[in-house]
Nucleic acid binder design. Structure first.
Lengths: 239, 239
DNA sequence: TCAAAAGTGTTCAGCGTACACCCATGC
DNA sequence: GCATGGGTGTACGCTGAACACTTTTGA
């Protein structure tokens, strides 16, 4: 009987020559008062000198891809509750000048003020506003575009935004967040009704002060209630 | 200046010891009159002898992941317009008994009658009804579950179903397809109205014959119209 | 004439969308 | 008092969901 040797059926060892380098690349989205930005680093690898690239690294032998992403993210931040999502694998044999490197792309989304810059490499790091990014090294522009598309989809059905705002926020700050990230305009009255109907905001009975206009009420997000409702599968969170 | 060596910034070569085996695994969903099935193969690799596994293979040096998927699918079918979607990467260092194998999971969905069994390996191949599948080799049960979830989501927004039915089909056949794949019941009148309102079915002015009940009208799907509308981005296909 | 599936309409509730005016504060 | 953003309500159209009876055919 001829039998095709196959990784899932019958094989006795893995050969060196079929192995490949594997990396993770992370589109780190950041949000602050100025808007939506992406953390990029200078690439000095020919032929991409002068271009910026995403943060990423080779995956080590004893870690999962998720471990590698956490490593990439934590090299630069002290945050522990990191949020990230897998986007897609990129495997063009010619995508990397050093040879074959398959990369799995992830995106993360953090509050820029929580981000700690802390090693000598950091001078090559920069938060670039999403709309100011032009060409990137490797296929990173493509990765960025597909990640951003994926983020925009995700953010309308998951309360990612609430961890990126100050603990106490106004409805206008919240709406600005969605408008900035989604790059659309929303109707103020409809937005407020929508958020109220979700019944997940805690009215703190506090107001802004020192603003030269009518002060807005402050809210916080009821993560406990959200988690409880999601566990029971009985919440349709859509914005 | 200390500088972290990094795949995206500054590195002169790729070392052997950081390389890993890479595979693709494909959840091949199939549909026929009997329902939704998955193509599985016997696994003879310790410690999984006697279990079934998904179809997959190691990725070769000069192919993309998509090339590898097509190779896996075409080893067993003569179809050219293969449909497949990436699901997720699985990278637990202990997921494979031969050593570290990172796998990228894909699902495909085909008409079982189009599928050609054609080599000696095939006697180990079987279409198993989705609800009859128990444990699988490796982490393939997890991969199957996550792929099925992903398929169910996809199928409500993309006309995948229409390639899996006979060219001429009745509305009941179409509804059965959705009910079977989604494992839900749908209201007949609402379903028919929905499909009519999409205005993508071609009324063939033909009816079933030799059925011992009122014969149903036959339809086909207007792929041309669908593609045209989708290009213009002006169709919200949801079932 | 019976069994079996085909075919058909209406009502209701919820949700997204569009839209304009008065209010509270600091300067 | 004026500039600035905060706060509010209504009307309409679309869509999903629930629900029962008549029609056509073969046996």
């Amino acid at each position: 009987m001829t039998r095709v040797k196959n990784i899932n059926t019958w094989l006795t060892h893995l050969t060196q020559e079929s192995k490949t380098s594997l990396s993770v690349d992370c589109v780190i989205f950041g949000y602050d008062e100025e808007g939506l930005k992406v953390l990029l680093i200078d690439c000095n690898m020919p032929p991409y000198e002068g271009k910026k690239s995403l943060l990423g690294d080779l995956v080590q032998m004893n870690e999962t891809l998720e471990d590698a992403v956490i490593r990439v993210l934590q090299r630069r931040t002290t945050l522990t509750d990191l949020y990230f999502e897998e986007v897609k694998a990129y495997s063009d044999p010619n995508r990397h000048p050093l040879g074959r490197v398959v990369t799995i792309a992830y995106y993360s989304f953090i509050k820029i003020s929580d981000y700690k810059i802390h090693d000598s490499e950091d001078k090559h790091l920069e938060w670039i506003p999403i709309n100011d990014i032009d060409e990137l090294a490797f296929d990173h522009r493509l990765i960025l575009d597909e990640s951003y598309k994926s983020l925009k989809k995700k953010i309308r059905n998951h309360p990612i935004g609430f961890t990126l705002l100050p603990e106490k926020f106004t409805l206008m700050q919240l709406q600005n967040f969605y408008e900035t990230v989604l790059q659309i305009k929303m109707d103020r009255r409809n937005f407020r009704r929508k958020l109220n109907s979700l019944d997940l905001l805690i009215d703190l009975n506090e107001i802004q002060n020192n603003v030269s206009h009518r002060p807005a009420k402050l809210y916080s997000f009821d993560f406990k209630k959200y988690n409880k409702l999601m566990e029971k599968g009985l919440l349709n969170f859509t914005i």
